[in-house]
Amino acid sequence: MSQSVPLRPSDRDGIRRVLIESLSYVAPEADGSSLQPTADIREALDIDSMDFLRYVTKLHALTGIDIPERDYSSVSTLRGAETYLALRLGVT
Protein backbone atom coordinates (compact mmCIF):
# COMPACT_ATOMS: atom_id res chain seq x y z
CA MET A 1 0.00 0.00 0.00
CA SER A 2 1.58 3.25 -1.06
CA GLN A 3 0.30 5.92 1.25
CA SER A 4 0.12 9.29 -0.42
CA VAL A 5 1.08 12.19 1.74
CA PRO A 6 -1.18 15.18 1.11
CA LEU A 7 1.14 17.56 -0.64
CA ARG A 8 -0.52 20.62 -2.00
CA PRO A 9 0.85 21.05 -5.51
CA SER A 10 2.39 24.43 -5.98
CA ASP A 11 2.64 24.57 -9.76
CA ARG A 12 0.96 23.30 -12.92
CA ASP A 13 3.31 20.32 -13.14
CA GLY A 14 2.36 19.33 -9.61
CA ILE A 15 -1.32 19.57 -10.48
CA ARG A 16 -0.84 17.38 -13.53
CA ARG A 17 1.00 14.81 -11.43
CA VAL A 18 -1.88 14.79 -8.92
CA LEU A 19 -4.38 14.29 -11.74
CA ILE A 20 -2.48 11.39 -13.25
CA GLU A 21 -2.06 9.78 -9.83
CA SER A 22 -5.78 10.11 -9.08
CA LEU A 23 -6.74 8.62 -12.41
CA SER A 24 -4.38 5.70 -12.16
CA TYR A 25 -5.81 5.10 -8.67
CA VAL A 26 -9.26 4.35 -10.09
CA ALA A 27 -8.14 2.91 -13.41
CA PRO A 28 -4.74 1.35 -12.74
CA GLU A 29 -4.52 -0.25 -16.15
CA ALA A 30 -5.12 3.02 -18.00
CA ASP A 31 -2.31 5.28 -19.14
CA GLY A 32 -3.50 8.65 -17.86
CA SER A 33 -0.73 10.55 -19.61
CA SER A 34 -1.97 9.53 -23.05
CA LEU A 35 -5.47 10.91 -22.43
CA GLN A 36 -6.78 13.64 -24.68
CA PRO A 37 -6.87 16.80 -22.53
CA THR A 38 -10.45 17.57 -23.55
CA ALA A 39 -11.85 14.02 -23.46
CA ASP A 40 -14.43 13.19 -20.81
CA ILE A 41 -12.47 10.91 -18.56
CA ARG A 42 -15.60 8.90 -17.64
CA GLU A 43 -15.99 7.94 -21.29
CA ALA A 44 -12.30 7.66 -22.10
CA LEU A 45 -11.45 5.44 -19.14
CA ASP A 46 -14.84 3.71 -18.92
CA ILE A 47 -15.35 4.59 -15.26
CA ASP A 48 -18.67 4.66 -13.49
CA SER A 49 -20.06 7.07 -10.93
CA MET A 50 -18.50 5.18 -8.06
CA ASP A 51 -15.06 5.31 -9.61
CA PHE A 52 -15.61 8.96 -10.43
CA LEU A 53 -16.40 9.56 -6.76
CA ARG A 54 -13.18 7.78 -5.82
CA TYR A 55 -11.29 9.96 -8.29
CA VAL A 56 -12.75 13.10 -6.67
CA THR A 57 -12.01 11.70 -3.22
CA LYS A 58 -8.41 11.07 -4.24
CA LEU A 59 -8.05 14.60 -5.61
CA HIS A 60 -9.32 15.83 -2.26
CA ALA A 61 -6.84 13.66 -0.39
CA LEU A 62 -3.91 14.86 -2.49
CA THR A 63 -4.74 18.55 -2.62
CA GLY A 64 -6.90 19.18 0.44
CA ILE A 65 -9.51 20.74 -1.80
CA ASP A 66 -13.09 19.62 -1.28
CA ILE A 67 -14.77 19.55 -4.67
CA PRO A 68 -18.53 20.10 -4.34
CA GLU A 69 -20.84 18.03 -6.50
CA ARG A 70 -21.86 21.00 -8.63
CA ASP A 71 -18.22 21.30 -9.75
CA TYR A 72 -17.92 17.68 -10.89
CA SER A 73 -18.35 18.71 -14.52
CA SER A 74 -15.36 21.06 -14.15
CA VAL A 75 -13.07 18.19 -13.24
CA SER A 76 -14.34 15.68 -15.78
CA THR A 77 -11.64 16.47 -18.37
CA LEU A 78 -7.91 16.72 -17.77
CA ARG A 79 -7.76 20.30 -19.02
CA GLY A 80 -10.85 21.36 -17.08
CA ALA A 81 -9.56 19.73 -13.89
CA GLU A 82 -6.15 21.36 -14.26
CA THR A 83 -7.70 24.81 -14.70
CA TYR A 84 -10.14 24.22 -11.85
CA LEU A 85 -7.49 23.01 -9.39
CA ALA A 86 -5.11 25.83 -10.38
CA LEU A 87 -7.86 28.33 -9.62
CA ARG A 88 -8.76 26.73 -6.30
CA LEU A 89 -5.12 26.38 -5.26
CA GLY A 90 -4.19 29.87 -6.38
CA VAL A 91 -1.55 28.53 -8.78
CA THR A 92 -0.91 30.56 -11.91
Partner: peptide, 17 residues
Protein backbone atom coordinates in the same frame (compact mmCIF):
# COMPACT_ATOMS: atom_id res chain seq x y z
CA UNK B 1 -29.45 14.23 -2.69
CA UNK B 2 -27.96 17.52 -3.89
CA UNK B 3 -28.83 19.25 -0.60
CA UNK B 4 -27.55 16.36 1.43
CA UNK B 5 -24.30 15.97 -0.48
CA UNK B 6 -23.80 19.73 -0.47
CA UNK B 7 -23.28 19.64 3.28
CA UNK B 8 -20.90 16.73 3.20
CA UNK B 9 -17.22 16.27 2.44
CA UNK B 10 -16.52 14.18 -0.60
CA UNK B 11 -15.82 11.03 1.42
CA UNK B 12 -19.35 11.06 2.83
CA UNK B 13 -21.39 11.81 -0.26
CA UNK B 14 -24.04 9.46 -1.59
CA UNK B 15 -24.48 8.24 -5.15
CA UNK B 16 -27.91 8.12 -6.84
CA UNK B 17 -27.41 4.37 -7.17
Amino acid sequence: LRDRNGERPVQRRLLPA
